[in-house]
């Protein structure tokens, strides 16, 4: 294409679209630890963002007074409240552990396939361990 053409003419010049590369759709791939953990990082991030509204409710109720605070504590102590807190704690520990894994990648470490799988399983183990520990201490402290 001649470079001395006016810009508008160059932009509109008839030109077949280039065969741009496309990646296969997601369902083509077999789920792997690395890909599952990757999408879970995003999913738990969204869950935590939504969960912050409960945290704000808790703080605002504490500021409002004992009655409002008792309502929140009552809700969080109910089975549905505990279920939400369980989901929130799993998401938090997962996002925290996998976030550290991401920070190592950002610094340029841990890209070898073996290392990526080892760190992935470490994240799974840390999530399970920290969640179990947190609930043991919390439920032990409430008795």
């Amino acid at each position: 294409m001649p470079s001395d053409m006016p810009t508008a003419e160059r932009a509109s010049a008839a030109r077949p679209p280039a065969p741009r590369p496309l990646s296969p759709h997601l369902q083509i791939y077999k789920p792997q630890l690395t890909s599952v953990l990757s999408i879970l990082h995003r999913a738990t991030g969204i869950a935590l963002a939504v969960g912050t509204s409960v945290l704000v409710w808790w703080l605002v109720a504490a500021a409002a007074g004992p009655a409002a605070f008792a309502t929140v504590q009552g809700f969080l102590g109910s089975w549905i409240g505990k279920l939400m807190l369980l989901g929130w704690s799993v998401s938090l520990f997962y996002h925290l552990a996998n976030g550290i894994r991401h920070l190592f990648w950002d610094a340029g470490y841990g890209f070898e396939l073996k290392t990526a799988y080892a760190s992935g399983w470490a994240v799974v183990a840390a999530t399970a361990g920290l969640t179990a520990l947190a609930w043991l201490v919390a439920l032990g402290g409430m008795r």
């Binding site: 004992p66 925290l96 976030g99 920070l103 947190a134 439920l139 409430m142």
Partner: peptide, 30 residues
Amino acid sequence: RVTAAALVPMTLWFVVSVILLAGAEHATVV
């Protein structure tokens, strides 16, 4: 990334604090 790195210690502190406050009364939390 900067907020992520800052949140690592801050989140751990918050979670430990909240666990220790589990079931606490209003006056204690305030």
